[in-house]
Design a protein around this nucleic acid. Structure first.
Lengths: 185, 185
DNA sequence: GTCTATATTTGGATAGAC
DNA sequence: GTCTATCCAAATATAGAC
């Protein structure tokens, strides 16, 4: 194990392909070709194809947790939610492949990488839920966190995939409008 | 072509498997086994594995369009949005497999069934967008439609997959809260 | 209309040279 | 640490019996 640059090439190539075609439809041959290395090198750097996806997920969850936590720090209520949403949208913009893979895998159970996917769910939905809970004790916090994360994820991907000419602020404005609905009248 | 019951068995089996593992990871053998028929019968009823997925998508989009259109009929503004969201949540509840496949495939481009998936996007996001546009000319209607549909889809699937003991009303309450944010202050 | 058997291709993983 | 060559299992699709 070593030569970090090769590993990053492999991870980036795999993320792009898996985001577009899905895990099973992406062959190790494809990954090697796109990364510009031989298949043997892929298996020198990663134990299996599943390990590659795990690594992609780990990298993504690290980034998402980090940015969302620091966006939340020292804030609460609507202010916290708005900053967390902005942070999440940034991750979707900068790691669109990861976001697509996430969208495809979050609601599947029983797959090999279920735990890693669960960690992303926690990082995103639960963090939103924790902030919402004291604001709206009348709502189920997890479902509300899911709804908020869903609006961020789908609006963010809709933006990156189909309307990438729009500015970041347009996406944020939409999400902020919906978040406003969580403030008690 | 005929014997509708066999076709429905195949479609249901395929939808369940594809929802859980994805299209490529689901073999025609698996589908035949779960449907309780031989592989030859699958190919007698459908031209290819891709055709099966197309049929699943068509069936789903039909149902979604139908329910959302009639929920919208004769209403406008927040009232229309709330009824449309309720209709969409019903579809997610009754056709959870279809909803999972949708979540996995909406943001992938260049696949064989891209058109059918596009039709679902239209049916869902555009219908929301049309209602939102006159309410909020300050927002990008498509992004807003995407955000609303995302909150419905993710909250709905979160409900069905991880919190199915909760009542329908809890999900609807969460989505209604967010929709309230779209009403101009 | 449904079955079993099989032709053919593809893909994950390993061995071993350099 | 990276390459090429190869093994073997799995999967799509078809042929043809019943």
């Amino acid at each position: 194990m070593a030569k970090e640059s090769t590993q990053v090439e492999i991870l980036d190539a795999a993320a792009a392909l898996i985001a577009e075609r899905g895990y099973t439809a992406t062959s190790v041959d494809d990954i090697a070709l796109r990364a510009g290395v031989a298949k043997g090198s892929v298996y020198y750097n990663f134990g299996s194809k599943a390990d590659i996806l795990e690594a992609i997920l780990q990298r993504g969850v690290g980034r998402l947790s980090e940015l969302m936590s620091s966006a939340r720090e020292g804030r609460e209520g609507l202010d916290a939610l708005e900053h967390m949403a902005a942070a999440a949208i940034e991750v979707i913009r900068d790691r669109t492949d990861f976001a697509k893979i996430l969208a495809a895998e979050v609601f599947r159970v029983g797959r090999q990488w279920e735990e890693s996917i669960g960690a992303v769910r926690e990082a995103a939905i639960s963090q939103f839920a924790e902030v919402i809970a004291p604001m709206r004790p009348d709502l189920d916090a997890h479902l509300a966190g899911g709804a908020v994360f869903g609006s961020v994820l789908v609006a963010g991907l809709e933006w990156m995939v189909f309307e990438s000419d729009r500015p970041f602020e347009d996406v944020l404005a939409v999400v902020k409008a919906l978040l406003g609905g969580l403030v008690k009248a």
